[in-house]
Design a protein around this nucleic acid. Structure first.
Length: 378
DNA sequence: CGTCCACGTCTAC
DNA sequence: TAGACCTGGACGG
């Protein structure tokens, strides 16, 4: 579930299912979790959620002044990060999901449980927590301050990185993750390995007020190149897309990136670049896969990795030329960038035709389709 | 069976 | 700038 949109959708989910629900008793943790105990116990409390970038905050609010041994139970905030696999569910006790690591119990007859589920356990929570220091304003819901913070700190070292890597810096881009950076840069045809400062400094002089004006001006495109470039920077500049692209996912109304979910196809259809067949992909300096098309940009990592190179030699077997390029890294004509989607490895088959004759999208990620409801759809 | 890959941080050399 | 931290699905043999 875990980029800005998924975190926000999770907060909406919590507020929806917990509306009018009274929770009771202690908050319990799974035996295997290494996260903090949540020492909160209350006869009757409510749960509300909010999100900021890649964090969700649950607020536990006692209902009456619950006097116990002379002291009132105080409200508690718990701040969650979702890692690679976190999400919330609301189920009966019997249907508690595997990997439900933190649990809140309702006072209903057959009680229900709000649980934080996290298969890989990279997620975390902080009782009595607040938004993490070092994470900037939310790209979705604190747009003006997000924009201002970036543009007033362009001299910072963070912006000497390639733009695709800077976009994952949560101090400036709180909420952007791996699929969003690919989608955002793709929409603007920005090569991912261009220095971030270079891309952003042309926005520095923009009138901030202009950014609040809706896309009207787009219709106004008379053709002088001067005007054209102005239009482009105002209606579709990078920082603006860091705001609008994640909001598109929120407004799709599904659950965002969640391959296990039935309605994942909506999200999949929305993706234009990330994991799409025909797109290129390469590793950035942190080992994260960057999806893009067109130029990689000058700061693309060199294909070295002497240690990993050995292990990684065996790849791309359907193409002799590609294989040679991989085995003999001295030939750096492509700077280590794959020219084709890594179909055989990722399960991205070129094209699939269903039994019923309906052609799937050419860019299907069949790994996700399969784990999804493909068989059920038969 | 084994290897690779995944929506993200963290801390330690 | 590696790894560590984890589980599990897809795919290859």
């Amino acid at each position: 579930m875990p980029e800005g949109p998924e975190l926000h959708l999770a907060s909406l989910f919590v507020n929806k299912v917990c509306e009018g629900v009274v929770f009771t008793g202690p908050v319990t943790k799974s035996a295997v979790s290494k996260n903090c105990d949540v020492s909160f116990t209350c006869e009757a409390y409510r749960i509300q959620a909010s999100s900021r970038g890649k964090e969700v905050k649950l607020t536990l609010t006692p209902m009456k002044s619950d006097v116990k041994e002379g002291s009132t139970v105080q409200p508690m905030d718990i701040v969650f990060r979702f890692g690679m696999s976190g999400y919330f569910r609301f189920t009966s006790e019997e249907e508690l999901p595997k990997h439900a690591h933190l649990r809140f119990f309702s006072n209903e007859k057959p009680c229900r449980v709000l649980s934080f589920v996290d298969t890989r356990r990279f997620g975390s929570w902080q009782p009595n927590g607040s938004w993490q220091r070092g994470r900037g304003p939310c790209v979705m819901f604190e747009y003006e301050s997000f924009r201002k913070k970036v543009l007033s700190n362009l001299s910072n070292q963070a912006f000497e990185r390639p733009i695709c890597e800077a976009l994952l810096n949560q101090n400036y881009f709180n909420g952007i993750g791996n699929y969003l950076r690919a989608e955002i840069l793709f929409r603007l045809s920005i090569p991912p390995f261009v220095q971030a400062r270079t891309v952003l400094e042309i926005l520095e002089l923009e009138d901030l007020a202009a950014d609040t004006t809706p896309v009207k001006e787009e219709l106004d495109d008379q053709k002088t190149s001067d005007r054209e470039s102005k239009r482009t920077s105002q209606s579709a500049d990078l920082l603006r897309l860091c705001h609008t692209v994640p909001l598109e996912v929120v407004n799709m109304g599904g659950k965002g990136y969640d391959p296990q979910k039935a309605d994942y196809s909506d999200f999949q259809a929305w993706l234009q670049c990330y994991y799409v067949a025909g797109m290129k992909s390469t590793r950035d300096h942190n080992g994260r896969t960057m999806w893009f098309s067109g130029d990689s940009g000058p700061m693309v990592p060199k294909e070295c990795k002497s240690t990993k190179a050995k292990k990684r030699v065996k790849k791309e077997e359907d193409n002799d030329a590609a294989m040679v390029a991989e085995i003999v890294p001295k030939v750096k004509t492509e700077k280590g960038v794959k020219q084709e989607a890594p179909n055989s490895k990722t399960g991205l088959r070129k094209r699939k035709v269903k039994q019923d004759g309906e052609v799937t999208r050419p860019c299907d990620n069949t790994r996700c389709l399969r784990s999804n409801k493909t068989s059920e759809a038969r």
